[in-house]
Amino acid sequence: MTLSRRQVLKASGAAAALAAVGTPSRLFAQEKLKVAAIYTVPFEQQWVSRIHKAANAAKDRGDIEYVATENVSNTDYERVMREYAEAGNKLIVGEVFGVEEAARSVAADYPDTAFLMGSSFKPDDKNPNFAVFDNYIQDASYLTGIVAGAMTRSKNIGMVGGFPIPEVNRLMHAFMAGVKETAPDAKFQVAFIGSWFDPPKAKETAFAQIDGGADIMYAERFGVSDAAKEKGVLAIGNVIDTQADYPETVVASALWHFEPTLDKAIAEVKAGTFKAADYGVYSFMKEGGCSLAPLGTFEGKVPADVMAMVADKEKAIKDGSFTVAINDDEPKSS
């Protein structure tokens, strides 16, 4: 594309203005930001669906242009990152849990592009344009645990996760801590399926735990609630609200709201101040990054005193008088 002399002068003037005020980044503002996203799983997968939803909301507001690619393999991730950077996207979002080193290497080659990536690691000085995030929704997960502890009769709870990595582990631990508030003698069956999206495997794992006495399932992965529904036991949702899909099964869900995280990044890029930072804090409840989903058909079925406890804990979390512990260690059956 050939730029006119006027466009060149305008761009040069903007760059000079940013340099003059000592901005910490060479990223420049533009009216409608070009944003691209790279996902290793389908758009409908829980975690990715929340990022995709937030990006589409920003697009509908007219803040950004948005393109995305789903089901990108780890071996192809670097290529797609480079293609989006070469295409002029100024903010690239994704999840690099399996391609951390390659992703940071790509970011180093495109210093004028902002990268906001789901990661178990922290930002570093080598990549000033590479910020990280994770779904720190332990606050909402803890509240769902309080509900689950009140609803279990067998005091045996099944938990099926994808991989035992920090972003999964911390939510499981928070849920278990919540359960102990209302069922201190509860036991847990914990299993990981080794996949982010394998509903049949998650379902079979859940069946085994239900056969082992679990009467409430923590559905960290798709497929678990299906098993719970078929076996006539209850389930707790994670990241998204599936109550309408499982009205007699899903009691409560911890919702992740990615909007605060993405909106902060968009604002920083537009201001020319985007830098390496940990955006995980924007998933906290006090930042509006997570919440307890409405109980739907279970409204009135959870004891009133338990819901009063949930309300008190939520208030304390939001005002900072109570902090849900963040434990990234792999949870074990007990």
Rank of each mutant, 00 (worst) to 15 (best):
T2W: 10
L3I: 10
S4P: 02
S4T: 15
S4D: 09
R5Q: 07
R5D: 14
R6A: 15
R6K: 15
Q7D: 15
V8T: 11
L9F: 07
K10V: 10
K10Q: 15
S12W: 10
A14H: 05
A14Y: 06
A15S: 13
A16S: 14
A17E: 13
A17Q: 12
A19N: 08
A20E: 15
V21K: 13
V21Y: 09
V21P: 01
V21R: 13
G22E: 10
G22W: 12
G22F: 13
T23C: 15
T23F: 09
T23W: 07
P24E: 04
P24Q: 08
S25H: 04
S25L: 12
F28L: 09
F28W: 02
F28T: 14
F28E: 13
Q30R: 14
E31L: 03
K32D: 02
K32V: 07
L33S: 04
K34I: 00
V35T: 02
A37C: 11
A37G: 10
A37N: 03
A37I: 07
Y39F: 15
Y39V: 02
V41R: 09
V41N: 04
P42G: 12
E44Y: 03
Q46L: 11
W47Q: 06
W47M: 08
V48T: 14
V48I: 08
S49A: 09
S49N: 12
R50F: 00
R50E: 15
H52V: 10
H52C: 03
H52G: 06
K53Q: 15
K53F: 03
A54E: 03
A54V: 04
A54M: 04
A55S: 09
N56Q: 10
N56E: 07
N56T: 06
K59W: 03
K59D: 01
D60N: 13
D60G: 00
D60Y: 03
R61K: 14
G62M: 04
G62F: 01
D63G: 00
D63E: 14
E65M: 06
E65G: 10
E65Y: 02
Y66V: 05
Y66E: 05
Y66P: 08
V67F: 09
V67Q: 12
V67T: 13
V67S: 09
A68N: 07
A68V: 03
A68T: 06
T69W: 00
N71R: 03
N71E: 10
N71Y: 00
V72K: 01
V72Q: 06
S73V: 02
S73G: 09
N74K: 06
T75R: 08
T75Y: 02
Y77V: 07
E78Y: 01
E78Q: 13
E78S: 15
R79Q: 11
V80P: 01
M81C: 08
R82T: 13
E83N: 11
E83Q: 14
E83V: 01
Y84H: 08
Y84E: 02
E86D: 12
E86R: 08
E86H: 01
E86T: 05
E86N: 07
E86M: 06
A87P: 02
A87I: 01
N89C: 13
K90C: 04
L91G: 04
V93N: 02
G94T: 00
E95D: 08
E95K: 05
